[in-house]
Design a protein around this nucleic acid. Sequence first.
DNA 1: GATGAATGAGTGTTCATTCAT
DNA 2: CATGAATGAACACTCATTCAT
Lengths: 202, 202, 202, 202
Amino acid sequence: MPVISAKRMQDRIDAIVEAASVTFSTKGFEAASIAEIARAAQVSDGLIYRYFANKRDLLYRVLQAFYERLLPQVEAQVAQGVGFEDKLHRLVRRHVEVFVADRGLCRLFLTEVRVASDYQGSAIQDLNRRYTKVLTALIEDGIAKGEVKPDVSPRLVRDILFGAIEHLAWPHVNGDARLDVKASAAAVTALFCGGVCLPVKA
Amino acid sequence: MPVISAKRMQDRIDAIVEAASVTFSTKGFEAASIAEIARAAQVSDGLIYRYFANKRDLLYRVLQAFYERLLPQVEAQVAQGVGFEDKLHRLVRRHVEVFVADRGLCRLFLTEVRVASDYQGSAIQDLNRRYTKVLTALIEDGIAKGEVKPDVSPRLVRDILFGAIEHLAWPHVNGDARLDVKASAAAVTALFCGGVCLPVKA
Amino acid sequence: MPVISAKRMQDRIDAIVEAASVTFSTKGFEAASIAEIARAAQVSDGLIYRYFANKRDLLYRVLQAFYERLLPQVEAQVAQGVGFEDKLHRLVRRHVEVFVADRGLCRLFLTEVRVASDYQGSAIQDLNRRYTKVLTALIEDGIAKGEVKPDVSPRLVRDILFGAIEHLAWPHVNGDARLDVKASAAAVTALFCGGVCLPVKA
Amino acid sequence: MPVISAKRMQDRIDAIVEAASVTFSTKGFEAASIAEIARAAQVSDGLIYRYFANKRDLLYRVLQAFYERLLPQVEAQVAQGVGFEDKLHRLVRRHVEVFVADRGLCRLFLTEVRVASDYQGSAIQDLNRRYTKVLTALIEDGIAKGEVKPDVSPRLVRDILFGAIEHLAWPHVNGDARLDVKASAAAVTALFCGGVCLPVKA
DNA sequence: GATGAATGAGTGTTCATTCAT
DNA sequence: CATGAATGAACACTCATTCAT
């Protein structure tokens, strides 16, 4: 029989992840201290180490929660779309929106996690793959349905699309530039489709 | 009258930049210590501060040297090309090659510099702009010559192209994946052109 | 509930202050290193920073402890005196004694603290004021009781008295000269009174 | 035969001392760097070490020049006075004036030189003694002429007077308090004389 | 289960001084 | 005579992590 209830325990964990999410996003990984996160979560420093192996593990759990929130949203968006181009447009738009809505967490991922030497093969990379998988699946579906050129490489398309959006969003994420969600999404989608979409039959 | 010859002085500076280049590329910016770089350059710690304002300045000078070496190479490649697509292909290929030939410096740039909060507006961003300018100029030239769709945004194209290559190269740069220069360059160029190039002749 | 007892905590703090007191007094503020103080206090370097904001704060706490020990002593001495001149004599004597008994701390105060650019308005200056206040209060009392010339400025008297004693004691504090407590105190008091005391009415 | 003329050499030395005087007074001894002084004196770093043994020696020469400028001024002032009290008043006034006119150099002396462990027995202490000697000589003369109590100790009087003025001037020297020369000099002299001067015969 | 006191490793930077040129 | 390039020692402070209480 647990000394504290499972619910209370989960609340504690959630509070820590939430506090860490805010603190990491705001100040960056290095600049954020465990003591600060503990204070924000109304918890002692030591308790964090009961639930998280170390500071970096905590960072991963923050991003994990982020991805787990994100994934259903994109999937839902794509599911609502009709036809390849519409689905693609929804995916792109949602992705761009994330850079605006969760700027701090995006910066965290790009500056502290993906860049880390242990990213390859990590649980986070796995989540990222599941996220980008929505796109490659969409491409494959498009190929199958004859909406996308059959010789297109889904992996290449994935790199081009996400790479492009990231580059576009970077000045916004890391600096103070504005990001026009609608225009950016439209432009990327259009240019992109012009290349990969088959011309609708005459 | 100078106490030492200009050449001797330049040699010292070069030795420091070279040592820093290797050390930073190998261990990363934070993990590399000034003492270590000084030792590698056969120089005292203090001397580094005669020629470089601080550790970060040294990092910038390393990347500056890198870009100054890079720039003429790309320009020469593009100049040798005939027609938009050939020129583009050469640019893409050269860019992909850099990720293989200078993997350490590329990682350095991507993980330590571009990601820094003071990147926007820095001298390095300026150099980066000059580098990517080769592409936007090429696009503009292509538009002028009727080889590229007139409504294409050079900035968007730039983000798509460099973003895509970066994404493609990342597993190689940060991990141990292989990067097939020829295939990657061809694929990117083809897919890319399929989108932005006007179909020749009606 | 606290992890360690309040007593144990206070013991640690006291040990640090004591070690710092000795080290600072012996070697001076700059020359004393935190590592050295920590070692003397049988404590880790880091612990010092749990209880003291920085090295200078530690210095202040050393002098604070010094003043807090001093203050009741002078007040007691003055309280025991009978009449203005006797009280004054006791105060002067006590003050001179301090220069002998706590030579190291006196030097510390004179060479490192009062001389600092941030002394004005500091907590230490405040303590010093409380200390010298004993004299100005005594003067005011003397005026009220008709033992001291009514036009005498307490602030001026304070500067003269403490300035004089400091000058007298300096060769002893900073060098190796001897300081004859009894003689010095008597001489200062006498000369001083000859000036400020009203001649007893005829 | 010297390679440069003696005059040119002296000019160089003077320039260095002057530059050091300004720099030390403004920024303090530690904060002032040899490189900075050399630049201000339009001279190379190395040259300073031809004429001065080390940084501290330079500091001493700055104060030496200061005292050598001061000495004749006080002596002249005292010489112009008529009778003990007038002479004393002139001396006090001149001394207070110095704290206003040469605040930087006074602070330099009080915070960096007199406080140093090697002050006792130094050339500077010697100069200081020559300076204060003007007062002790004046006292002795006063005693001889029957203007001053015969049992007064000149050394004690010296400590009281200079100690008092220093204490009075300190908030001005080290902080931003104003110092009223006239009032301060008058007050010190009066209080002081009331004690040491014989009442003029009835 | 929870606390928070304790640890201790790790490094960029300055600058007086020297001496090769 | 003059230069200024080169040296290298020295140290406060932070904070992730542990474990006695």
